[in-house]
């Protein structure tokens, strides 16, 4: 299938090297992934507190983390060269294999996260003798966020450094 103008545009965006120095090394990419996880937890936590709690004060926090979160998401996508954003026809054979691995690993991690969450919520209900109905929706939103972001975090951690310039 031939690439569309959208495909080519996205490919160019995902392979834009202007910010490459920010994610050039493993420690930098780990730092970006860690910061992205922290911002996601903060933002989603604040959103859950706002929607399922009382008061709108924490919406300020959601708004505050939004911009840096988008910036880090862009850096992560740049570091993976759009592995999870580009259509399959814009990826080569190695990238398609890597995308499958990333998705499989993310799926496994999310599965264990779900298991831990189910046991945690169940244990809380039993030990605290609290009704679980009110906890279901917030927990579901939290798990949804983790399920959504996990492939990006895994992909960001699996990227290898570029080899040096090889022009002769």
């Amino acid at each position: 299938m031939t690439a569309t103008r959208y495909d080519r545009r996205m490919y160019a965006v995902m392979n834009d090297r202007r910010a490459a120095a920010a994610y050039a090394t493993v420690p930098r990419r780990r730092l970006i992934v860690g910061a992205h996880i922290a911002l996601t937890v903060t933002g989603v936590g604040a959103w859950i507190s706002t929607v399922f709690g009382s008061g709108y004060g924490l919406l300020v926090l959601v708004a505050a983390v939004m911009l840096p979160w988008m910036l880090l998401t862009g850096l992560l996508n740049g570091s993976t060269r759009g592995l999870l954003e580009l259509r399959g026809r814009m990826l080569d054979e190695r990238q398609l294999v890597e995308r499958d691995r990333v998705r499989a690993l993310a799926h496994r991690i999310t599965l264990w996260l779900l298991v831990a969450t189910a046991f945690g919520v169940g244990a809380y209900g039993v030990l605290a003798d609290a009704p679980l109905q009110t906890a279901v929706a917030p927990v579901l939103v939290g798990v949804l966020a983790a399920h959504w972001m996990m492939p990006l975090w895994v992909a960001g951690l699996r990227v290898q450094d570029d080899l040096g310039d090889d022009e002769e």
Binding site: R81, L91, D92, E93, R94, Q95, V97, Q160, D162, L163, D166, E167, E168
Partner: peptide
């Protein structure tokens, strides 16, 4: 000769050439 030129000639991403060089990917 650059990885970029080789990558374009064989139709893969330039990073893939680096992965093959390092033995981190076995090409089809």
């Amino acid at each position: 000769m650059s990885r970029q030129a080789l990558a374009e000639a064989v139709g893969v991403h330039y990073q893939t050439i680096g992965y093959i060089e390092r033995g981190q990917y076995n090409p089809s």
